[in-house]
Amino acid sequence: MTPLALVDLTWWDLTLAAALILINAAASLALRLGLEKKLLVASLRTLVQLSLLGLVLQWVFRQPGPWAVIGMMLVMVVLAGWEAVRRTTYRVRGGYLLSMGVMFVASMTVTLYGVVVILGVRPWYTPHFAIPILGMLLGNTLNGISLGLETALEGFRRDRPEVEMLLAHGATRSEASRDVVRRAVRTGMIPILNAMVAAGLISIPGMMTGQILAGQDPASAARYQIFILFSIAGGVALGTMGMVFVASRLVFDDRDRLRAERIRRVGRP
């Protein structure tokens, strides 16, 4: 099958697309939703952020050698790790740093496996493979880490009597935190499992849409999407487990005492 010609979007095309935003504006005005300002900011951010991303990627793709790609990937990992914690209402000290560390290990392991082993791309840092795959992984792993961390820390605060009852009978920290950890890992993994169940039934996944628009054979796009969903599932599992295990280690001290005072509640951002 010959790829169809890619329809390149001009700024004029985007202006036409922006007309669609007017529907939101009309709704906000008619129903007095008070969303006009938010809508304007959101539209501008979409425009600016994605245009910038396009320019940055354009530049990165042109650089020889691995360093621009590595730098870009590190920035992405750090931002995702930061955002995962920023979304939570329960925090522990060092949470941001740990989230970045867990994010790095989980997303890079899966990205490298995907690029090198599955796709067989050489060199591994070929930017138009490594960066989009990492990006897809980060978005989802971020969710898993965030949900897992929130559920674990909230669980240790709420179930403190139960956890301490087990400790009082001689439980180690891992024995006493088993139920909280299980619940947190489950909670972190459920969204991606739901997405996998619904994939292709309710909507065409974003990446597959992009490939089809770019003229790819839909069957090949579907295989890519399957590969991506499996990779995401792996990344989410690694990230969620890593974060939950590390966080549940942090709320105990070296005598296996639950230190609930190490868990802070912050106002929702």
Partner: peptide, 14 residues
């Protein structure tokens, strides 16, 4: 003694 071992010997009931 480690914490769990101590607590299994000196047991607190809430």
């Amino acid at each position: 003694m480690d914490g769990p071992a101590w607590r299994s010997r000196v047991l607190y009931v809430h």
